[in-house]
């Protein structure tokens, strides 16, 4: 084929891409830097790149009871909801993927349509319900509510993952005398494990980042980390910015840990499409 000349347009395109790459991460890097600054180095008209770093902000954040409680609540609520999502969502997804029936399409649409529901429309009635039962502002209430999210998302993403498992492998296992359940346990789950891990990681990021429902379903005991972080800022500029930045960094780290798993998941989804 005819090679295109290396022209101004190509250079410009590369420059735009580099700028976009820079914009993608620089605000975060800047926040992380600010978390290491004393207030005098943040409140400057000209941004300061050179400063004497301090760990005081991070120390302060990690020493606050409210932050630690928020961290604990987030870990427990998200962890439990993801476990429930795995226990209920994966088997259901496998059944839809491998035992097609005439409701399969409707089931998939129902699971997706749960995502259409505006969060406020779910949170307001649930708040009233939990208040009446006496579970308002408790972790169990939050876990049950989040399970709706995790089950549906894990199911939605796991159906194609199970469909991608070669049918022949499962058929061979049946011939070898495996029952339906052991085919699921010993064949389908291990073979699809990598894609499934991506789906599970995605559901964790989703509930970890969730804000509106947690805000409405907690008043003091069950606050998750995003709520605690947002409250720090509501105290206005009295809170040193370094501390706010440190709390943003703490909140953002867990989802970023999954960056590798999730980008691998994305790649595997598209590799299936190609073949």
């Amino acid at each position: 084929m005819r090679p295109y000349p290396i022209g101004l347009g190509r250079l410009l395109a590369k420059a735009i891409l580099a700028l976009a790459g820079f914009l993608a991460v620089f605000p975060l890097v800047w926040t992380a830097l600010n978390a290491l600054k004393n207030n005098v180095d943040i409140i400057t008209r000209v941004p300061r790149l050179v400063f004497s770093p301090t760990l005081a902000n991070i120390g302060y954040i990690l020493g606050r009871d409210s932050v630690l409680t928020g961290l604990y609540n987030s870990v427990v609520a998200c962890g439990a909801a993801v476990l429930i999502g795995v226990a209920l969502g994966l088997p259901a997804a496998y059944a839809v993927a491998r035992y097609p029936n005439r409701f399969a399409g409707d089931i998939q649409f129902f699971v997706l349509s749960l995502r259409f529901l505006p969060p406020v429309a779910v949170a307001i009635p649930l708040m009233v319900i939990w208040l009446q039962i006496g579970l308002y502002d408790t972790l169990p209430a939050l876990i049950v509510t989040y399970s709706l999210l995790t089950i549906s998302v894990i199911m939605w993403l796991a159906i194609p993952a199970f469909q991608a498992v070669p049918k022949e492998v499962e058929e061979a296992a049946f011939v070898d005398g495996y029952g339906a359940y052991s085919v699921f346990w010993r064949i389908a789950l291990p073979v699809a494990a990598r894609s499934l891990a991506g789906a599970v990681a995605f559901s964790f990021v989703l509930v970890w980042n969730e804000f509106l429902i947690a805000l409405m379903l907690s008043s003091s005991n069950a606050k998750t980390l995003p709520i605690v972080a947002s409250e720090l800022s509501q105290q206005g500029m009295n809170v040193p910015w370094g501390i706010l930045n440190a709390s943003v960094v703490l909140l953002s780290l867990p989802p970023l840990l999954f960056l590798g798993v999730l980008s691998g998941f994305l790649n595997s989804v598209f590799r299936q499409k190609k073949s």
Binding site: G21, L28, N209, P226, L244, V248, P255, L259
Partner: peptide, 15 residues
């Protein structure tokens, strides 16, 4: 390019 979307919305809003 995947990094920003993984951030909690609250974090992105603060940043």
């Amino acid at each position: 390019f995947i990094i920003p979307v993984l951030l909690p919305r609250v974090s992105a809003a603060f940043v």
